[in-house]
Amino acid sequence: MATRQTHRLARLMMTPSVAALLLWMLVPLALTIWFSFQRYRLTNPAISGFAGFSNFSFFVTDPAFWPAILNTLLIAGGVLVLTAGLGIGLALMLDQPIFGQGIVRILMISPFFVMPPVAAVIWKHELMNPTWGVFASVSRFFGMEPVNWLGSFPLLSIILIVAWQWLPFATLILLTAMQSLSEEQKEAAEMDGANVFRRFWYIILPHLARAITVVILIQTIYLLGVYAEIQITTGGGPGFASTNLPFLIYNVGVLGGNIGAGAAGGLVAVVLANVVAIFLMRAVGRNLDA
């Protein structure tokens, strides 16, 4: 409710943001579409001209294509499940009265401040290294054979690394949401005879619906594009075991020098992102009365 003048002003105020994002979306997208139909090799300028759909068929028939799609979804899904699940647990714990809450909070939030390349370096060299890594030392302490995490369980390892980075974010948002639940509501449920589990299931969890939505939405945005962690830890391998779509596109397009096929892969990724986005909006968007 406001005047037409205010609405005109509002549109004007939105223009810079909308225009910037529109350009940011359309220009690269248009160029990507253009390239995807061109023969374009970095290594051989002689190859040029209209390519039809050959770039797409080249990209789609790459043996890494389907594993990459699957891995992209597994990484996003795995991290989401871990961070949302553990995040709720941590938030429940942090919601209790304890000593040293301030320091605990600082410790818990810290992984969020670590840039992806450093996180990858730390986990690869300090923790997961089968010879001198901490995990190996722990295994030996219990008399077990050290596990070569990145070699034997590359995808799981990457999921763990990324989940470690995003768990603080999920925990904080869930904790804030949990703290906004009125004490009265919890007490009312207690008066009604609900035990701890029922209180969690019927009162706390529904109250967290919006927060969980936000966590899923924001994290998904970042998780579909996980790149640095893979490059530094496994390099997409062994084989294609930890290659995701962004990594494959970079490999084909830039490292492989086939710009056309890389662009085709980019469009596939755009389509996948849209499919996920639509799915997300359907599934959780209603919790978000923006």
Partner: peptide, 27 residues
């Protein structure tokens, strides 16, 4: 000054972040 389209605009803005960076790196 929300309009019925405000939510769509916001979601669209967020969706631009879902565009995979690797896909548009070359351009």
């Amino acid at each position: 000054t929300p309009t019925p389209r405000t939510r769509d605009v916001l979601m669209w803005m967020l969706s631009t972040k879902m565009m995979p960076a690797a896909g548009v790196l070359v351009p």
